[in-house]
């Protein structure tokens, strides 16, 4: 409880502060872009930036789902494993080719992936809410389960798309573009726009914020807390599936390393974006910004000749911390 909060003499609070908080991640992103341009002039090339934004799609889309889960006061560590599992089942389905024709086949596989993702999310949500177990533990458990199922499906190796024709038909979903805008970028924009709409403009979104702010108040206000929580996990599962829809056409395979550590990247993107880990505040566009920052950091490191390849991890960590510092110092103003 802040000192001022209990007196009516509250410090003038803050339309401006709120704005700054939302803008902060974008300032950090801009600073990073300037830094990148200084390091290597090629950095600002259209091709390079397009590549980076395109490949940030997986983390960005998953992190939109994570924004919902975290805003509602939850956590999902299983997203990386879930992505591998969804990708694995999707490819196996494509390889089984139960229907004729490339496009209907792919469409069906996409539906299946969304269904599997939603079910995985539902499992996380139900175990957390019905079982009354800490989400950290639940999703740590399902993280192992989804990962092991993937490896089992792959029989220890990788699951690759067998049909070259299907592969060719599906490939444009990652590599194609519409009027020069890569499809994955459109996917990011669409998912973020829908996510922002749901979180900020709908009753459900308001309920998510309320549950994350204070579960008891939400319950006493007639909100079905468990249902809201569970749905956030289902949204997370759907977002993972959408990321997979874009991931599979890139390399056409799921391996034991697919999605490794994506959960940490997604959570990092959410936090850099200004969403509070304790819940109650969610910033979808900030999250997208966070995902871009993460991807740019890696890109700048490869493009630069600043440090030995052995030290890249250290510099990446330092840049993320600096980005957070910029973000927080602006937000505190």
């Amino acid at each position: 409880m802040s000192d001022a909060a209990t007196t009516s003499a509250t410090p003038p609070a803050p339309r401006r502060e709120i704005d700054l908080r939302a803008v902060a991640p974008f300032v950090a992103l801009a600073a990073l872009l300037v830094f990148g341009a200084l390091v290597n002039p090629n950095f600002l090339g259209i091709d390079n930036l397009t590549n980076v934004i395109t490949r940030s799609a997986f983390i960005a889309v998953i992190a939109v789902g994570a924004t919902f889960v975290i805003s509602a006061g939850g956590l999902d560590l299983s997203v990386g494993s879930m992505a591998a599992f969804v990708a694995g089942t999707m490819i196996l389905f494509l390889n089984a080719a139960p229907v004729e024709g490339g496009v209907p086949m792919i469409a069906l596989a996409m539906l299946l992936a969304l269904g599997v993702g939603a079910l995985c999310g539902l499992a996380n949500g139900l175990i957390t809410t019905v079982g009354r177990i800490e989400p950290f533990i639940v999703t740590l458990g399902t993280m192992g389960i989804y990962r092991a199922l993937t490896i089992w499906l792959a029989e220890g190796g990788s699951i690759a798309m067998a049909s070259r024709d299907l592969r060719a038909a599906y490939r444009p979903v990652y590599f194609g573009d519409v009027f020069g805008v890569p499809i994955p970028v459109l996917v990011i924009l669409a998912v973020a726009a829908i996510g922002a709409f749901v979180l900020y403009r709908t009753r459900f979104g308001r309920h998510v914020m309320a549950v994350g702010s204070n579960e008891d108040v939400a319950r006493y206000s007639g909100i079905k807390v468990d249902r809201v929580r569970t749905i956030t996990y289902v949204i997370q599962g759907l977002c993972v599936a959408i990321a997979v829809l874009v991931y599979v056409p890139r390399l056409g395979a799921a391996t034991a390393t697919t999605g490794l550590l994506w959960e940490l990247q997604a959570i990092t993107a959410v936090v850099i974006g200004g969403t509070a880990l304790r819940g109650g505040v969610g910033r979808i566009w900030g999250t997208i910004c966070g995902a871009l920052i993460l991807e740019l950091v890696g890109n700048i490191m490869v493009l630069s000749d600043l440090v030995s390849e052995y030290l890249i991890g250290a510099v990446q960590g330092a840049i993320i911390i600096v980005a957070m510092l910029i973000q927080r110092s602006l937000a505190r103003r």
Partner: peptide
Amino acid sequence: KGKGLLLQQNLRTNLTLAALDRFT
């Protein structure tokens, strides 16, 4: 403070929380 109001949210959010149906 613990069960009635969301202290970290603004007045509007708190006011309409239980009756959101009427504002949609």
